[in-house]
Design a protein around this nucleic acid. Structure first.
Lengths: 180, 180
DNA sequence: GAAAACATGTAATTAGTTACATGATTAA
DNA sequence: TTAATCATGTAACTAATTACATGTTTTC
């Protein structure tokens, strides 16, 4: 139920914001970490209000409602952030396919893995571009954004290397090599 | 909708199996890649039968039904396996928390990251145990299982290193260091 | 005779997606 | 005046989880 905590956290960062404002942040900054749809977000803000974890602090034109976290909301958020262990993502579509690669000819299995390597390499390059555009940025948000970005860089590099190694395992020569 | 394809794939591997048999494989072999509940699996087998991607090939005692993939099912499975690009897992609970680490004192943020490093190291050790128990195993299933295991080893190593690096970034000394 | 294992199914709930539906304000 | 942006809300559907519900066969 992390959308709830993402919303609380964004309100804690911003002080106050409307659903529309939050949606903008989800689409800009959290798109690759915790996407949310408009429908889901407005529904969640309603539930958070009922639970008294946030409250409407201002109403503006066009039906705009500005929300802020309550004391209870802040507490709930910090409990989640530091006390609750992050749930690891158990489902992995790609590894599921690897499990079944024995059902197709080795050459097609190899192609699959090399395709994954290429996709990872592409992602890596895209992130390197983001990294470059970030040099010179200051502030605490830049620090944590940089840390998350570094995760992506290492993840995509790992995936690229692994997939190329795995493709090697499927060839006669590769099967004799040691992993690493 | 990968549960559908996981079920098709397992039936393709096995030739035929009951819902109960498949559930055993999900719990043993696919637990860390694509978990499924009993309720979900039986429901899916019903849908797959309606869609004529599988069919009941035998009925036994205790209401047992043995399923096998149809020609259409095999086709659908192979299309999924090789043609459809794997969907990358977009939501990452841990990175979401990293995004908000600026909201708590640096020492608590550092603790959070070192906790993640420890969890990753623990996972790595657990997988190394699995790896050892696998040496000597033969056959194509062992090859692909080994490839998936290697992903887990590299992933956990990456996460451990990254989290320790990130914790370093949050200290005065660490902030001056270069990433890598 | 009791427990374990085999075997299937449904109901209720939650999280998330897509689509539908409406309207106000601002900038070109 | 019209298009873009701002702004909110509901409905229908899918995937997944937890709980409920039942019964048979084998093994100790």
């Amino acid at each position: 139920m992390s959308l709830r905590h993402a919303a609380l956290g964004l309100l804690a960062l911003r002080g106050e914001a409307s659903g529309y404002d939050l949606l903008g942040i989800f689409n800009e900054s959290l798109e690759h970490v915790w996407p949310a749809t408009q429908s889901q977000l407005y529904t969640e803000l309603g539930k958070l209000t009922d639970a008294e974890l946030v409250q409407v602090v201002a109403e503006g034109g066009r039906g705009r409602k500005a929300y802020a976290v309550t004391e209870a909301g802040r507490k709930e958020f910090e409990h989640w952030l530091l006390e609750e262990p992050p749930t690891t993502n158990r489902r992995n579509d790609m590894l599921l396919r690897v499990f079944f690669l024995g059902l197709v000819p080795p050459e097609q299995a190899r192609e699959f893995l090399l395709g994954r390597a290429a996709a990872a390499a592409e992602m890596h390059e895209r992130l390197r571009g983001v990294e470059e555009s970030l040099t010179g940025e200051q502030g605490p948000l830049a620090v944590h954004g940089r840390i998350a970005l570094e995760w992506g860089l290492r993840y995509s590099a790992m995936q690229d290397e692994w997939a190329r190694w795995a493709a090697g395992q499927l060839t006669a020569e590769g099967a004799a090599e040691q992993p690493g």
